[in-house]
């Protein structure tokens, strides 16, 4: 098992997956408890427009995706902040438009781009030192933000109306949450790709929620689960020579179903 670590790319991949797991555990908890899973999926997919834009203009596709993700997060936030009931429609529309724009830009770009798959499904094995530093820096920023506004984030996530009544700046914090989510999506995209990222953000918190009555512990536990899934996924991909991103998600998916069955089993004390 340790033999794989003699390769620098494996060591980098391991570090990266630990950092990204912490990131996904924290932001994923906010996403799950605030019912932002669908919106996060929308942000991730619509970021493909930014990938296309990046390829077309020659700027980094990650930068393009980042800009697209943040902009879409803000638009989705504006569209949903007043009317939560129709949020899903707006998100669905932006989701599709973002991807369509990406496809058009890729069509317009000369030559066939072999890297396209890595944006969609991740390529953790090719992650660079610099990218690890950026991910680590952003994760520290996220931890600092959550630490500073923990009470407020907890209050808003649990009971938005009450938070508003007692004077917490609900809307600014909602938008900040969306922006942090968007940037986290782009960073996690490096590992599992923008199509799969939603699983890494939602499965660990879903499982963690069962085992704690504290929001902070849910974040910590989610990070641990995410780490377990990504590291085991990484080893599986190494030994069977298959895609790392997909392996990680399949491992997480197995975890999800085990947890789901355990939950269902616990609740079976009723007829329907």
């Amino acid at each position: 098992m340790w033999s794989a670590l003699q390769f620098e790319f494996m060591r980098n991949a391991l570090f990266a997956s630990i950092i990204i797991s912490i990131l996904c555990g924290i932001i994923g908890t906010l996403v799950v408890v605030n019912r932002l899973v669908f919106m996060t999926g929308g942000i991730a997919h619509s970021a493909y427009g930014g990938v296309g834009l990046g390829l077309y203009t020659g700027i980094s596709p990650f930068l393009g995706a980042g800009i697209f993700a943040v902009l879409n997060a803000i638009i989705m936030g504006l569209a949903t902040v007043k009317d939560r009931d129709r949020a899903d429609t707006v998100i669905g529309v932006l989701w599709a438009i973002g991807m369509a724009i990406g496809i058009i830009f890729v069509d317009l770009t000369r030559g066939y781009n072999v890297n396209l798959m890595s944006y969609l499904f991740g390529s953790i094995l090719s992650i660079s030192k610099k990218e690890i530093y950026v991910s680590a820096f952003f994760t520290i920023l996220l931890i600092g933000w959550v630490y500073l506004f923990y009470k407020e984030l907890l209050a808003i996530s649990y009971d938005e109306e009450f938070s508003y009544v007692i004077g917490i700046p609900v809307i600014p914090l909602y938008f900040l949450t969306l922006i942090f989510t968007a940037i986290s999506v782009i960073i996690a995209m490096r590992m599992v790709g923008l199509i799969l990222v939603i699983a890494l953000m939602s499965i660990p918190p879903y499982i963690a929620e069962n085992y704690t009555s504290s929001f902070a512990k849910m974040m910590a536990l989610s990070s641990v689960f995410a780490m377990f899934f990504s590291i085991s996924g990484l080893w599986i991909s190494y030994y069977f020579n298959i895609s790392a991103g997909a392996s990680i998600i399949v491992v997480a998916g197995v975890g999800f179903f085990i947890s789901y069955l355990l939950r269902a089993f616990k609740k079976r004390k009723r007829w329907v």
């Binding site: 408890v33 506004f149 009470k151 407020e152 209050a155 649990y158 938070s163 007692i166 929620e209 929001f215």
Partner: peptide, 20 residues
Amino acid sequence: FPISVMDVALMGRLNKRRLG
């Protein structure tokens, strides 16, 4: 939602505490 009785009650104190 993972939240304890104490956490919910403390939420009421938020109006006395400044942000952060």
